[in-house]
């Protein structure tokens, strides 16, 4: 296959970027999208040009590091996969492919197609945990958890933190991401003690990072490589209002053990 690529190039966070056009030649349909970029990068390198920088690591759809907004869709045209799992057989010979970085205020571009998603980490740090220290925990089977609850919590827990939900959302809202963790821990008995403070802390951090507001368009759900559902957002909303309007708990200062 031969393709035309229009790629966002930007030297660093401070520079302004632009779209640059490249040819991708002799691409095998069996290549993954990132392998296609590898091929382009090899030829750029041999010419002494800077390769196109993009985030990637595991290349099996689980680490959440790869991103790319391909032809107007995060992780490309197929459902429920990440860019690293996208294969070139999903495109046709002669096609023009436009590749952009995730666009959101809280995801500033670092270089080319690489964006800074540390805002996601900060949201998790604000409350995405159960405050237990290592050791001194009860036996794993002491609290039975109904299978439906465990399975549903698992579904929420599969979020890989890639940011496709933000990229897809017309409002650059991070609510699917935040709600996945709030839901997971909110459903499990282990997460109950901090359920009401957690949701407040995580939402406050999400707001502080400057993400947009959810308008329930469902684009996030449609683009999520792990098929996290909108129900999670609903659960988060419910917990949040419940916490804010009817509960005693505020956002607690985390006591993390130690002195």
């Amino acid at each position: 296959m031969n393709l035309t690529l229009k790629v966002w190039r930007q030297k660093d966070a401070k520079s302004t970027g632009k779209m640059v056009t490249y040819r991708a030649e002799n691409i095998s349909p069996d290549m993954s999208f990132l392998e296609m970029l590898d091929v382009v990068n090899e030829s750029l390198t041999l010419k002494g040009d800077e390769p196109i920088h993009f985030d990637h690591d595991c290349r099996e759809g689980i680490c959440g590091m790869c991103s790319l907004y391909i032809n107007g869709r995060p992780h490309g045209p197929k459902k429920a996969i990440t860019t690293c799992q996208l294969h070139m057989r999903s495109f046709h010979d002669g096609e023009t492919i436009t590749i952009e970085p995730w666009r959101a205020g809280p995801f500033p571009v670092i270089k080319d197609l690489i964006v800074d998603r540390s805002s996601f980490d900060r949201i998790q740090q604000a409350g995405g945990f159960v405050s237990v220290n290592t050791g001194g925990v009860p036996d794993a089977n002491i609290i039975p958890i109904p299978k439906v609850i465990a399975d549903e919590a698992f579904n929420s827990a599969t979020c890989i933190g890639c940011g496709a939900c933000v990229a897809a959302c017309k409002n650059a809202s991070a609510m699917l991401f935040v709600s996945a963790k709030v839901s997971q821990l909110g459903m499990l008995p282990q997460g109950q003690p901090e359920r009401w403070s957690r949701v407040q802390a995580m939402v406050a951090q999400m707001d502080a990072e400057g993400f947009g507001n959810c308008t329930n368009t469902g684009a996030c759900e449609a683009e999520c490589p792990k098929e996290i559902t909108l129900t999670n957002i609903s659960r988060m909303n419910n917990d949040f209002f419940s916490a804010k309007l009817f509960r005693e708990e505020g956002v607690h200062e985390n006591s993390g053990g130690g002195e």
Partner: peptide, 23 residues
């Protein structure tokens, strides 16, 4: 606020499936 959350917009208009009315 939502506009402000995406200061640089995409070159390609989104093709993510979402109902017309919701958008």
């Amino acid at each position: 606020q939502n506009r402000r959350a995406r200061p640089v917009s995409y070159a390609v208009q989104t093709k993510s499936p979402a109902s017309w009315s919701s958008k």
